[in-house]
Each structure stands twice: as C-alpha cells, then as structure tokens.
Design a protein around this nucleic acid. Sequence first.
DNA 1: TTAATCACG
DNA 2: ACGTACGTGATTAAG
Length: 901
Amino acid sequence: MSEQIELSKQPRLLLIDGNSVAFRAFFALHQQLDRFTNHDGLHTNAIYAFKTMLDVVIKAVHPDKALVAFDAGKTTFRTEKFGDYKGGRSKTPPELSEQMPYLRDLLSAYGIKSYELSNWEADDIIGTLAHEGEEAGYQVIIVTGDRDLTQLATDQTTVAITQKGVSEIEYYTPAHVQEKYGLSPEQIIDMKGLTGDTSDNYPGVTKVGEKTAIKLLTQFDSVEGVYDHLDELKPSKMKDHLIEDHQQAVLSKDLATIRTDAPLAVHLADLDYRGPDLDKLVPFYQSMDFNNFLKQLRNTSLELDFDQAGMNQNQLVPVKWTVLTAQNVDLVTQFTKEISFILEMPDENYHLSAFSGFVMTDGQQTLVSREVDLLQTKPVKQLLASDQVKKNVFNAKAQYVGLHRLGTPLDGVDFDLLLVSYLLDTNDNSNDLGSLAQQHGYDAVESDEVVYGKGAKRSIPDDDQLFFDHLARKALAIQELHDRLFTQLDEHEQADLYRDIELPLTFVLARMELAGITVDTTQLTDMREKFKEQLGTLEQTIYNEAGETFNINSTKQLGTILFEKMKLPVIKKTKTGYSTSVDVLEQLASQAPIVENILSYRGLAKLQSTYIEGLLKVVHSRDHKIHTRYLQTLTQTGRLSSVDPNLQNIPIQTQQGREIRKAFVPSHPDWEIFSSDYSQVELRVLAHITGDHNLQEAFVEDEDIHAATARRIFGLSAEDEVTPLMRRQAKATNFGIVYGISDYGLSQNLGISRPQAKQFIDTYFREYPGVKNYTEEIVAKAKTDGYVETITHRRRYLPDINSKNFNRRSFAARTAMNTPIQGSAADIIKIAMIKMEAALEQAGLKATMLLQIHDELVFEAPKSEIETLTQLVPKVMDSAVKLDIPLKVESAHGASWYEAK
DNA sequence: TTAATCACG
DNA sequence: ACGTACGTGATTAAG
C-alpha cells in the first residue's frame, strides 16, 4: 500500500464507489452526527465527509474524466444466483439514506456524473468502465472503501481505499496488493471464494480463513488449481471441508468476481470532468450551511486546484455545419417542424447593431452563413414567417426586431431560452447564451466573451471555422435545452406565465420599441440654450461664494469647500468622504447661501446632461423618434426596465424637469398623446394578497387610501379632519409596508424618532391585521421554500433568507414582503398590455401603444379616437385580472406627454 | 470599474 | 446588537 499515487502521463479516469464511500464518510463523522445538521434539520455529516474526500482525491489525481457509481437497488444478478446474497446485512441508517439525494446534488455541482444501473452493483459499473478506460489508454483510479475492489488493480489501474478518517487514502497497485496479501489482484477473488464474505453473507469453505486461503493460493494459484491438485494434500479436516464445500467455493468466487461487461448507458465520452460549477456549488453549500466551505471558495486556493483539474476545458466536441449560399438556399425547405435560429448581432442594441450572420438547425443539419441577405430570400422568409415551423431562439424580442429591420417577419416562436431561464430563476439571468447554457449544465458551447473577446478587442472572427462553430454550438445549445427547461417550467407551474404572458408580451414590446416615440428636438435644443445660460450664471455665483473655482460636479471637491474651507457641519458621511446629497444640502441651506445655489446647479445640470443632451443623442435622425429597449429579463421582481435611453425616468416632479415632457409628441399632425395609469396599484395588490378586510373595504368604497390610513393610525373619527401632515405620514407608512417595513427606514423617511416610527407601525398592524399576518407568513414561506411568488407564479429565490448575517437576512425578509406585491403589479400591467394590443386591433383603431412606465401606458392616437380610448383603455386595464378589490385607472391626453398627465 | 448622485414607479 | 426602506438607469468623477 502507499499513501501517494504515482501519476503517469496518460489521461486519467476517476471512478468512485458512491455507496461504499458514503458509508465510510457517514461513519467517519458519526460521533458528530448531531452537530452536522442544516437549517432544515437534514443531517449533513456524510455529505461533508464525502466532499472532503473528493477534494483530497481530485487534488491527488487531477482527473480528466470522472464518475461516481451507485448501487441501484436490493436485487441484482447476484441475488438471482444466490438468494441470500447480502442477506442479514443491517439496514442503512435513515440518517444516511436521507443524505443520498443531496450527495448527488453535490456531485452535480462538482461537475461529476452519477450513474446507477438496475440489476447491477456499483462494483460492476466500475469494473466495466475501468476496462473501457484501460483500453482507451487511460490511467484509472478507483476510490472505494471496499477492499474486494483491489482485484481490479493493474498496471494501469490503481485502487484507492479510504481509511477510517476518509481523508486518508491508501493506494493499491498490483505490487501493493502483493505486498499486503501475498497475492496478485486476480487472486483476490480466489481468496474470497475460499473464505467467503460475512458482510456480503456468502459462505466459502468451512474453517478456511484468510491465512489458510493465502497459503493454498500461493501453492496452487487459484480455486480451480486447488481442486485440480486436491490429491496432493495430505488427509486432514481441511481437505474434507474443501471436498465438502467445493460447490460453495466455486459459487463464492463467482459472486466475488466483479464484472467488466455490464450493459452501461454511459461511456467515457460522457464523463468529461471540468471542475465544479460555482453557480451550483455556492447555493448548494448555502443550503447545507457549509459556511466554511463557502469561505474556502471565496478564498481561492481550491479554485486554483479546480482550474488545473479543468485544463481540458476548451476542447469542445467538433460540430458539423453547412454554409448556406444563394445557390443552395433551398436547403432550408427541409425544415418543416422545428428549428433553433439565431440572427447574430454583435452589438447589444439590436435596433442599431450590424448583422454578422445567422444559423439554423434542427439538431440534425446545421446551416450557417454570414450573408444575411439570404434571410430576405423567399424560402427563408417563408420558413421564418411560418407559424407551423416552431422556432427556438435566444431573446425572441431581439430576433423579431432584427429580422423586422431586414424586412423578414418572424412567427412560430415556441421556446425562448433567455426568457425561460429568467422565469425559472431571476438570479441567473445572464444575457449570454453560452454562460446561460453552462449554468443549465450544458457545456458544449462557449460564452461570446471567450470567442469574440471583450471590451475594445471584441470582434466577430474572420475565421469561418471559429465563427460558424460557435454559431452552430449556440443553436444546438438552444435545441438541447428546450425539453429540459420546459420540464422545469412545468415543475414550477410557470408554463402559463410563459405561454400566456411573457412570450406574447415579448412581441408586444418589440412592436412598441419599433414604433418609437417622436421627439420634437427644437424644444430640447431651445431648453439646452436656456439651461446653458442659467448654469453659467449659477456657476459664477457659486465660485464667488466659495472664493475659488472648482468642479461643482465633483462631490469630493465640493465636500472640501463646504466642510473644510467653509466649516459647515458634517451631517452624513459616505464610504469615501463627506456626503453632499440633497437631504444633507437641504439641512445646510439656511446656513450659507452657496448651498441653495449648489442645489439649483445640481438640478439643472442633471436635467441638462441626462435628459436634454442625453435624449438628443439618441433621437434617430431619420424618423425623429426614440426607440428604447425594454429589458424583459432583468429585474428581480418581474418589472420591465428601459435602456438606451431609459424612458421610465423622465422627470415629472419638478416643473422645470416636467417641461422635458413637452418634447414627446405624436408622430402625426392631428394626433395626441394619450396616457392611462393605475391608481395605487401596489396598495390594491397588497389589499388583495393579504385579504385584509379593512384595507379592502377602503378600496371597495373608493376612499382616499392615505387619508383612510391616517384616520386609522391616528384614531380619528369620521368627522375629524385629516391634516396634510397626518396624510403625509400615513402615506409614508403605506409605502413602508409595501417596501417591507422597518421602524428605522420609516423614521429616516419621515424624519421622526425610531420609537415614534415603531408606534406608527404597531398601530398600522393593529388596524390592518391581515397585513400583519401576511408579512409573517410570507417570510415563513420564504424560509421553508426558499422563494416567494406573485399571483402568476413568477418566482424569486431568496437564498439569504436563512443567512446568519443580520443585514442579509433582514434584506431578504423585506424583499419577501415586497416582491409579491411589486411583482404582481407588474404581472397585471403585462397582461393588460397584451389585451390592449388585441383590443386596439379588434376595434380597428390607429392608436398605438408606445411606452410602459410600470403603472402607466402611453399611446399616440388620432384626435378622433381619443373619445373611444377614454372608454376602452381603462376598461382593458382594470379588467386585466380579477382581484378581490377593484382596480382604478385614470387617463389624460394632449398635445404632448406633458399634457397627458 | 466603482461610488455617488439623482431621475422615475 | 446588528444598521435599511422596494425596484430600476444615466451621468460624472476618480481610482
């Protein structure tokens, strides 16, 4: 035996006897069984020790391929041969059994395949794969706690036996077996034939133990040799027993023999080891409460080992593709059922991006090309426009817009990998196909960053092989993940959310983006001149008041002026220095006139740079429109977000800022901007979800909800007047509830003391007991399930909900309260948008939906249609879903977005 | 690239 | 005792 393994230059195959090692692992930490439980009460000692063993072995072996074999069940071909095989063996302890499924999760996170085969034991799986590995020129390392497996040791195969402590391992080569037993590996089975095996419960020859067996085998080589030369033995009790138990010896040898011909469904090609998947491993450790392992992960050293272990990472399996040209374009007519399709656009902004090529595959044949003109040919157009041929894509909205720009309509989209992944888990919403596929366990594709490079170096490769391989792999990844992800959607009860809401919405959004909103740039340029002048004046005044010139936009320089030179009191600090935010400056305004001017300057500078200049930069010169992009797979709650530019944060609060909205105008003369928004939608959703009677009543009676809350928390009677201050405080409390209330947060917001804020909250909960109940139940649900849901089963995981870190845990708890509310409100308007587009079409209106701002929809329409819209739009919006309380919608219209509010 | 600030719901 | 309100995006300065 040896405590080290000698590695050859061959590639290495690691085979682990899962049950045997798990058993050893369990008993290695049996004493501390009670200490090893996670927050769900699951025992984790075997998982912990198994993981430790894995690290030791991986570090020692650096395998290229790996597999863990498990026993499939009680009956195997051996029990057929010998009914009592493994009979009388004591049952696996339940504390171990419960850990077995999680062990497989661990292995999956480690990137190691698990395998079992009914009717066969793990030993035989290992024997068969070891044989296969040797033939293919691998050095094979077998890990087990069972010494019988030393029979598999050869020049190429080393058997590693775990010791009591698990992290200690003995490596057996044929020489080491010889040294330990005085037998060759092949003779191990002969020994078992003669001695039998008490733990597996088969007999052998009476009174023959290890010593006698070794002596006999040294002399006669094998069981058969012993019986061939039986007459050479002097008469003895032992000889009698040998004669008597001949049959048993032959049977026992057979039982002990590990097979190398099991009919496996896995082969070497399936066993590539590339190191652990941190995106799986981290949540796994979190779920097991393996905090020290988490720390280890962050600390590096392990990752280095893993990287070395995964050296072969970039050797992807070759893929086949055919280049599509004008000559062979008819090849696409073979696709009649289903294709995965990608129109490759190198820039994020698909409204402007160049086109670098495309790919389509049905899993059998893959067609690629750089000539996007081909997408405008009849056969391709027909294919893409057909609702009969299902399309699997990554980001359907981008594909729809891109193809639209080429004059090619897209229909029949069934599977959007990006969208489905987002619904399954909003946390891993990478925008990169390769990364996303890898997160879902599909490794045969690289991320764009790896192939195209990043930053300034990013470019589409000139090399056809490189580029088309990547395109083909991406398309195949989509094809491959289709079934698995749809299954998961079903498991999450999210198929309806996908099919009835998110997928149809993607095309509604695409059409809104393409429609764009017209901007009157002269309005903006006029404002720019006016603001420029005002900013210049303010700048001079500030310099005079400061006694020097400095960069007013620099918080650092401003801090020095205010708090060091002018010695104003420091109210708040940031990580890096003095805070100069609005609430700080407002408190200082009375002490120095410069502060007021800085506030004015700030406000003006923000409008100028972000809105005036920012918007002017993104108005298209041809159509005078802005085409934003809505990100449908970004937010954790289900809301949309808007980029390039963000049209969801155009100013409205201050008069000066609101003027910007005058630049957003209809695209035709005699048209108007029409806008409708949900009134108090989040509080209505809160009333619905919590089922709180008092809150619901307020909405059913259509009361001013903040005033009604004020009456309750200040204990007013119906005749008492609600003062503006009371209403303001009640409003803040309502918001606080929606955000996942804390007394500290409310006290900050209202500028009151913490006990006072606590008083508000306590009273609120007393008046609205249903709400109190909800906050408690939703946090409890998050703790047990690990996630919360909206009314449409949109899901958000909250891994921090059981964190030991107070901050993280509290944040997760507030999120648990807020997400179903904010998310359900997002669901509602999404449903309304889908119905709205259909309703406008149905009514034969020219009106077009242009923008969504969370609770508001903005349209443009001929003046003649305004009256119709005033009826239709609120009707569609308030009937989008049926809640326990009514939804309320308010509308306005006018010459610009400014007037439509 | 990160932090600070400020625009919106 | 812990130290925060929920969800976003764009701009600017500065390491």
